[in-house]
Design a protein around this nucleic acid. Structure first.
Lengths: 216, 216, 216, 216
DNA sequence: TATGAATGAGATTTCATTCAT
DNA sequence: AATGAATGAAATCTCATTCAT
């Protein structure tokens, strides 16, 4: 699960991302064009992955020209960073809303509710997240965004483990594992042709997580 | 987590992978050259990722030439497939050895022992796995390998969940989640600069997994 | 050393150059805008040279837009031609004022006086001249301007050599050499970080030129 | 007059310039290809100037491909630098051979002899020198080469002026002026359509220089 | 068995100029 | 009179793969 994008957190309306070539004020038309490029980018990245995506494809889909592309973005990476930042923002928001689920069945239900929302977000942003993982692996700088968002998430889960203080369990590691599980499970469930039914994902993950955190 | 490599399972000594250009018997020198290329490939893929890895880098590291590269491998993907197959073999072996850990403390200890071995393998093969993920995302055919090995792993864990029959828990999904957790936790713990201590990884994962599977 | 600009010699007030897109009468505001573009152009050409200068730079410096640029000038070359014409005018004027310096110390002093004025002009117009040289080399049509102004200069110097009639000296070539010297010496003295003191340039060049022309 | 190229002064045979992409040892074929590219480059730069020259033209003329070009040179500038270095080497050699011409007719004859050789070199290398001037103007890094070669030349001439100690003459400036004259006179005489006869160039410049340096 | 020179399709990027407002 | 978004041709550069030796 990518991270952060705190950079664009408070960006002024009208400049959806921070790294654009010139920090120009955009008029209505420019805004629409930029939006078209972002949407086209999301589509192409989703279908081809970060590396295989060609600026040419994006431009064609957005029905505009190469020149226009470079008017709004410094390069392919810059456009991707903008998309990632958008996703990152929504992730951060969601993570901050993670409830302090208690040991009882209520806690489990709360968790399930939150995981449902997470699943929805993941479904819409998944393609970007996948490309993000790819970029991350390749060591591109964009990949390095996002750590913060996840850290917050991990911190909350870590608190629960710390409270439980199970011997042999490193709370930070355990939290990391749970977070990793939630992210990857969504990844596999939504992309892979798993025999599993994704509609039960929130319930299942909630129970597993709850059991792991509030182990006897 | 990738899989398989059944191709090379019983392959004749001297041809560690199936897709090499000519299916010829290699003499000692040829073997060494091919091995050098494989090792160089592993190194370069690990450092740069699949897409960013250039044949030139591999060839330079192996102290050989482009021509020689294409003597032993059909293309970049072919070399990667050979590496993936090697890893896949070892993974399959390990997965088959997963104990049927029971609900008691003994089961947890068994699980921890197995996870320790998994960690060792991951440490050595991890970089290839990472590159694999990248290739997978990009939709390259190599990426499609690997699912099988994981399926076996998932099946065993799934059995446990099925036995427990917790209401609301889809055994297949839960197993997928646990497997994903184990894989990704290793990934993050070994690559990221987590504040956590990786030496406690096996113990922590064992406890978390055990608790999740044998929930009250 | 460029020349000419006869084009703008008697041009009507309000249109400092000949090639502007529409030959319209400009109001006060238009005049100011055009002037701003010319000044910005002079600056940018000076700093980057003709080819490296981008219309975008000029427009930004002039705090106006691309559209406006093409309202006043046909293209980049046209703006440059306008600038060159301005310089050419002043050069022609100065060359026509070259005194018929005699062999005695008075002639040398006259020459020094003239060279002082030349130096002042060069200091202010030099950057354009440099860009001019570049354009000339590249074979752009603008480059072909300028030869005339220099020819007049050369003619006067040539007269002196013809009078002296030194055996082995081709008067035209000698004059060309002296003119070239004066131009390039200023160029190097004013741009390069020569260890020499430019304030002595007029005196030194006067003596060298005088000695060369009125050799015993 | 460009400068220096001391960089390639002692370059090993087989690598005619210092800045090539990889410092590879070239086999016979590679050598020929690289030579073809250099020659094609010289031709294209001469005809179009540095900026207008397209790698495409060079490649076509050399009957090779873009890929090959970038095998031997990092970019256009790199190829140009290689050419400039070749010229610079020959210039440096020549400058070092400048005789310490005395005040008598013998000194003038010595000078003429040297200028004849200079003219020959200039004729063959002129096109590169012209492009060099253009690059220099544009502030490209290549342009900054060459100052050294000229400095040596200037130093020798400067010595003569220092010996003469004419009042009002700054020896360094005077030397600079003479050097500039010799260079530019060749430039104009060989490129422009001067009415002058270039075959008298050496004689004329020798006399003018001699008179200027050994003024009464 | 090995080499490394050569290729060329394709990717990214730039910028003078036009156009709709 | 002014704007700035849009264009697209052209330029540069990369790299997997082939080929001649």
């Amino acid at each position: 699960m990518p991270r952060d994008a705190a950079t664009s957190a408070g960006a002024p309306a009208g400049s959806p991302h921070a790294g654009a070539a010139p920090a120009r004020e955009l008029r209505a038309r420019g805004q629409r064009t930029q939006r078209r490029l972002l949407d086209a980018g999301a589509d192409v990245f989703a279908r081809r992955g970060y590396h295989a995506a060609r600026v040419d494809d994006i431009v064609k889909l957005a029905k505009t020209s190469h020149g226009t592309f470079y008017l709004y973005f410094e390069n392919k990476e810059d456009l991707f960073a903008a998309l990632a930042a958008e996703v990152g923002d929504r992730m951060t928001e969601l993570f901050d809303a993670l409830p302090a689920f208690g040991p009882g069945p209520d806690g489990c239900a709360e968790l399930e509710g939150w995981l449902t929302r997470f699943g929805e977000l993941y479904r819409s942003a998944g393609p970007i997240l996948r490309a993000w993982t790819e970029a991350e692996i390749a060591g591109d700088s964009v990949g390095r965004l996002g750590a913060d968002a996840m850290r917050r998430f991990t911190a909350v889960i870590g608190e629960r483990f710390r409270a439980a203080a199970t011997p042999g369990v490193d709370p930070a590691l355990a939290a990391l594992a749970i977070v990793a599980m939630i992210e990857r499970a969504h990844y596999y469930a939504l992309t892979d042709q798993t025999p599993a039914r994704p509609e039960h994902l929130a319930a299942t993950l909630a129970r597993v997580t709850h059991a792991a955190v509030h182990a006897p």
